[in-house]
C-alpha cells in the first residue's frame, strides 16, 4: 500500500495534482465549517417564567450580537425544577458551548454539572445565588448583593414600625438559594437596630402558587398584628399580595418584595406594594459575558463580583435607571 501511495504521489501529473488538491480543499472546507461556527453562550436562568431573567436575556443577546456570538436561552418553568435545569445544562455541555451562564436553582446539586463543564474547559459564570463551592479558575460568581438587599428591606420596613410590639414576617427563605439566607439574616440584624424588641416570623419558600398563598393566608391569620412582610422571591411576593388582598389588608400591612416581575412592579405603581428591591440582572449578565470573553483569552481567573440591587418605589419607577434594569426582550406569551 505504501509503495502504491508513494508511486501515486511521484507520478502525479499537474491536472492530477489539481484534482487531489480540490478534493482536499473540499474536505478541509467541510470540516472547517464546524470550526468556523460562532461561539455560543448558553444562558440558563433559574426560571423562564419571570421577567427578572428576561432582562438578563436582552442584555446577553445585545452583547453577543456586538461580538458576533450566538446565545442559547432556556430554563425550567419553575425555580424548584432542579432536574430540568440540570438536564438543560448537560445538554448544552454536550453541544460544546463556549461558555455557560447559570443562575442555579440549588446551591449544592449544581456543583457536579459545573464540574463537568470545567472538565471540558468550558468557563462558567454563576449568577445571582452562589454555590456552596468556591470560584475556581474557570468559574466566576456574579452575585446579587444580598446583604445590601437585606439592608434596603430593613430600612423600608423601619418606616412602618410603631412602639415596642412589632411583628415582621420574612417569607421565602430557602436553603437552595443561599442569597435568601444572607438577606434574611441581614434584615433581622438591621431591624434589631431599629427596634430591639421586634419579633420575626419566618416562612420557607414554596413555588407553587396554591400552596404559597395558603401559607401566606395562614400566617396573616395567625399574626394579626403584623407590621410588614418582606418576601424574598417573586412567588412569595405574589402569594403575600393575594393573601393580603383577600384579607383586605393591602396598605395596612406593608409589603416589601425582593426580585421584580412586571405584575408586581405594577402593584408598586398602584401603591399596593410598598416597594420592590430589584436585582440588576442586566449588569450581572454583562459582567458574566465580559468575564467569559476574557477567560477565553486567558486574561482573567475565577473571582466573585457583587452587583448591588436597586430599590423600586412608586416615586422612582419611571426613572431611566430603573427602567433600564427592568427592560426585557419580550417575556413569555
Amino acid at each position: 500500500m505504501h509503495d502504491i501511495l508513494v508511486s501515486a504521489m511521484m507520478g502525479l501529473s499537474r491536472s492530477g495534482f489539481l484534482n487531489v488538491a480540490i478534493m482536499l480543499l473540499t474536505c478541509w472546507g467541510l470540516l472547517g465549517c464546524r470550526r468556523a461556527e460562532r461561539p455560543l453562550i448558553a444562558i440558563i436562568p433559574a426560571t423562564t417564567a419571570q421577567e427578572l431573567w428576561e432582562s438578563a436575556h436582552v442584555e446577553a443577546s445585545r452583547i453577543a450580537g456586538t461580538w458576533g456570538w450566538d446565545t442559547f436561552w432556556n430554563g425550567p418553568s419553575r425555580e424548584d425544577d432542579l432536574l430540568r435545569q440540570i438536564q438543560i445544562m448537560e445538554k448544552e455541555l454536550d453541544q460544546g458551548v463556549a461558555g455557560i451562564i447559570l443562575a442555579p436553582d440549588h446551591a449544592v446539586a449544581l456543583i457536579s454539572p459545573v464540574r463537568a463543564a470545567l472538565e471540558k474547559k468550558i468557563p462558567v459564570a454563576i449568577l445571582d445565588n452562589p454555590l456552596t463551592a468556591s470560584p475556581k479558575e474557570d468559574v466566576v460568581f456574579v452575585l446579587n448583593d444580598n446583604a445590601a438587599t437585606g439592608r434596603i428591606a430593613a430600612e423600608r420596613v423601619s418606616h412602618y414600625l410603631k412602639g415596642t410590639q412589632n411583628e415582621v414576617a420574612i417569607l421565602g427563605v430557602h436553603p437552595n438559594f443561599l442569597g435568601t439566607i444572607v438577606a434574611a439574616d441581614t434584615i433581622r440584624d438591621e431591624l434589631q437596630k431599629y427596634a430591639p424588641g421586634i419579633r420575626f416570623i419566618e416562612q420557607g419558600s414554596t413555588f407553587g402558587s396554591t400552596e404559597a398563598e395558603e401559607s401566606a393566608e395562614e400566617l396573616i391569620e395567625a399574626h394579626p398584628t403584623l407590621r410588614a412582610i418582606v418576601t424574598l422571591n417573586v412567588s412569595q411576593t405574589r402569594a403575600a399580595y393575594n393573601a393580603l388582598s383577600r384579607a383586605k389588608l393591602v396598605g395596612k400591612v406593608a409589603l416589601i418584595g425582593c426580585e421584580q416581575d412586571f405584575d408586581i412592579i405594577y402593584r408598586v405603581r398602584t401603591g399596593e406594594i410598598d416597594s420592590v428591591i430589584a436585582k440588576d440582572t442586566r449588569t450581572m449578565v454583562r459582567d458574566a459575558m465580559q468575564w467569559i470573553h476574557q477567560r477565553r483569552e486567558g486574561t482573567v481567573t475565577g473571582e466573585t463580583i457583587i452587583v448591588p440591587p436597586k430599590l423600586v418605589t412608586k416615586q422612582n419607577v419611571n426613572s431611566p435607571e430603573i427602567q433600564w434594569i427592568l427592560a426585557v426582550n419580550g417575556g413569555t406569551n
Partner: peptide
C-alpha cells in the same frame, strides 16, 4: 415586536386588569 419596557407593560396590564373577573 417585543414588549420591551416595564412602563409599556404597565399600561397594557392596567387595561386587562379591568376586564379580568376570574381572580
Amino acid at each position: 415586536q417585543p414588549l420591551s419596557t416595564e412602563a409599556a407593560y404597565a399600561r397594557h396590564f392596567s387595561h386587562y386588569e379591568r376586564i379580568e373577573p376570574v381572580a
